[in-house]
């Protein structure tokens, strides 16, 4: 079987040590969080590294907390813990659903939310959910701490605006207002789950007196990064939360998508999926707006 090539290995116990180690390691230093992407990328030599900085010995980077007006999820929180969290299920169904179908159970038990976002896969499951929930990431870097919207982090396939020495420490997700709902759906080649998305869609809506006052739609595997389907969102605004509206928004989402054809699906099939999955995500988001704990 394939072996890892040699690398230097460090286990810093504070964020500052970790940032310093990464800064010193330069371009080829890698943060090890859950490892489910990093170890694969190193084994198949999609990435090279000279130094691996395992940040799991740094205290305080995992856990899910209710901050009152927001929820906080530590960057090292495992996907299985997000999947199992009642707080996340009640407040942020899109994230809960995305967590429950990411890869497979023994991978979810290792994978972390920070790693999933940092890896910036166009096929990310958590990415679209975090985007429609308006989540931001808190980041520690050589220049100190900062906060950025998750959707602003993605710059290209496998690329983010993060510097080599930046470490995501946690995510802040605003508490949904009354009448909010959200959902995430994806389709892999195996219809059953345990799969990589051929396409994925997350949606959130705010509904007041039967009218969608605000809707967000984010798509995965339908462009180079997880991104907002802005034209589709425009269609939703101020329209009744009815099948006609979401069908029109789904049509617009297909237009917002800019998929490529690859080994998993053709571009035209993905465009079809953009429409179908947006439709399904919106339906589910609207249905959940009656249940989400605001």
């Amino acid at each position: 079987m394939k072996r890892l090539k040699d690398f230097a290995y460090q286990e810093p116990t504070t964020l500052d040590e970790a940032v310093a180690a990464l800064a010193e390691g330069g371009d080829t230093a890698r943060v090890l969080a859950g490892g489910t992407d990093l170890i694969v990328d190193l084994k198949i030599e999609r990435l090279l590294t000279t130094a691996v900085v395992n940040i799991k010995r740094i205290p305080g980077l995992s856990g899910i907390d209710d901050l009152g007006e927001a929820s906080r999820i530590g960057a090292l929180t495992k996907v299985t813990d997000i999947e199992a969290s009642t707080l996340v299920a009640e407040r942020h169904p899109a994230l809960s659903q995305a967590a429950s179908i990411l890869a497979s159970p023994p991978v979810r038990a290792l994978a972390t939310i920070g790693g999933n976002v940092g890896r910036a896969s166009p096929a990310s499951d958590l990415g679209p959910a975090l985007i429609v929930l308006g989540a931001s990431a808190r980041i520690r870097g050589t220049g100190g701490d900062r906060e950025e919207l998750v959707e602003a982090l993605y710059t290209g396939p496998g690329r983010t605006s993060l510097a080599c020495s930046d470490i995501i420490t946690d995510f802040i997700i605003p508490k949904p207002a009354a009448g909010c709902g959200s959902a995430h759906v994806k389709l892999g080649k195996r219809g059953s789950g345990t799969d990589i998305a051929m396409a994925g869609a997350a949606a959130s809506v705010v509904i007041a007196e039967g009218v969608i006052t605000e809707g967000k739609i984010a798509l995965a595997s339908l462009g180079p990064i997880p991104f907002r389907a802005t034209n589709a969102e425009e269609v939703l605004r101020g329209r009744p939360a009815a099948e006609e509206t979401i069908a029109a928004a789904a049509e617009a989402a297909a237009g917002d998508a800019s998929p490529i054809g690859d080994i998993r699906a053709s571009a035209s099939y993905r465009t079809t999926l953009a429409r179908v999955l947006t439709l399904r995500a919106l339906r589910a988001a609207i249905a959940s707006s009656r249940e989400v704990v605001a």
């Binding site: 198949i44 195996r190 789950g193 990589i196 080994i263």
Partner: peptide, 25 residues
């Protein structure tokens, strides 16, 4: 199961992309 082959080169030579049925299938 579906190999994607381009000019004789198998492009999905991994179990992530060469799909074998799971218990859910």
């Amino acid at each position: 199961e579906d190999f994607k082959i381009d000019n004789g080169r198998i492009e999905n030579a991994s179990l992530a992309d060469y799909k074998v049925a799971t218990i859910q299938d």
